[in-house]
């Protein structure tokens, strides 16, 4: 393709990426080094609030923001350098914990590491499961009789179509204390089950849900790949006496390898941003993820305070995390391509 034609083709998408990805990223990056805050003064205020039979009036010392002549709060923006990152990562506290020999307490005491622990574990455990289950479904569907293939593919794809939050909520309602499945299981084994009372059962449910939800995506990709497997090679393998497992191991998987890398890449990127499961399963008490941490900083509390700088810092850290995770996979893909 001529260079000019190529450029005309990609220009619109480059422009979109610049406006919707690059510029916001730069602005978040800059925001993470600054803090914008109200200017406060402390005053004694008498407030009366209703009750029965009369109001409760009390004089208290209150810190209230200063307003300018237009009745809007005065704010000041200060450059704080890496302070916000320090507030998120809490390095002093981490070092102190390690020095006192309580290394594992880092993952319960400091929110960031607590979230990092879960996010990494979640990502790395679901990755092989998604690839394995996806491959299994693809191989099965590929061997199913031609006339029922359509309906089988349709049904296997269903979990992928469900909106993630809705899917997570449905699983929660099935397994909650008086949920349908919990009740059924309880009457089967005659023991009380509380899936949401401790962290590890919630984590198991989350991983089960994620694999159930994403495996169909892997399946579709692998299924497409299976259609182009060289039939001659397969036949010669059969003649050479290769078992079914050996055919999968030495013919099919090498053929699908680029697709496996592709799925791994997409899955790592998606799963490192795990968020819907935390909200859907309301697991904040037991497990949190990095993306949820950012969300939590951004969420205004009852009196309207939000921690925008720390949210920016935490989302920058999340991005760095994704890049670190992707480097080995990208490296491998590039090497393979050069070889090919």
């Amino acid at each position: 393709m001529k260079q000019k034609t190529f450029f005309v083709f990609v220009a619109p998408s480059l422009l979109m990426m610049l406006i919707f990805i690059a510029i916001p990223l730069v602005s978040v990056f800059i925001q993470s080094f600054y803090v914008t805050q109200n200017v406060y003064e402390t005053v004694v205020v008498e407030t009366c609030t209703p009750s029965f039979p009369t109001s409760i009036c009390e004089k208290t010392e209150k810190t209230v923001p200063l307003l300018d002549e237009n009745n809007t709060p005065i704010t000041q923006t200060v450059f704080v350098g890496l302070d916000t990152y320090r507030a998120v990562l809490e390095p002093e506290k981490a070092v102190q914990l390690i020095r006192s020999g309580q290394f594992f307490d880092i993952f319960t005491d400091i929110d960031f590491y607590k979230a990092l622990r879960f996010t990494l574990m979640f990502t790395l455990i679901t990755l092989p499961l998604v690839i394995g289950v996806g491959l299994l479904i693809a191989l099965t569907v590929n061997n199913v009789a031609q006339n029922i293939k359509g309906p089988v593919i349709f049904i296997s794809l269903l979990p992928f179509i469900i909106t993630p939050v809705i899917g997570a909520l449905s699983i929660k309602w099935l397994f909650i204390g008086d949920g349908l499945l919990t009740r059924a299981l309880e009457s089967l084994i005659g023991q009380e089950i509380a899936m949401f009372a401790q962290g590890w059962t919630i984590e198991l449910l989350m991983m089960f849900y994620r694999v159930w939800h994403v495996a169909p995506f892997a399946f579709v990709i692998f299924y497409a790949g299976l259609q182009s497997v060289n039939q001659d090679t397969l036949e010669s393998a059969v003649i050479d006496g290769a078992s079914r497992f050996e055919r999968v191991r030495y013919v099919i998987i090498p053929h699908l390898m680029p697709l496996i890398y592709f799925i791994a890449l997409i899955h790592l990127m998606d799963t490192y941003r795990v968020f819907e499961e935390i909200i859907g399963f309301s697991s904040e008490a037991h497990v949190i993820s990095l993306q949820w941490l950012t969300f939590d900083f951004l969420e205004p509390d009852d009196t309207g305070n939000r921690a925008i700088s720390r949210a920016s810092a935490s989302s920058m850290l999340t991005m760095i995390g994704i890049i670190l995770l992707l480097i080995p996979v990208l490296n491998r893909t590039l090497r393979d391509q050069k070889k090919g």
Partner: peptide, 30 residues
């Protein structure tokens, strides 16, 4: 009301401590 239950404080810092409590108490309970 008759037994003089106090009203929920009307200040900005209550919002902050409310959020901090909400995030941490579950660690003790679990």
């Amino acid at each position: 009301a008759v037994n003089r239950t106090p009203s929920y404080p009307l200040t900005a810092n209550v919002g902050l401590i409310h959020t901090a409590l909400g995030k941490n108490i579950s660690d003790y309970l679990t």
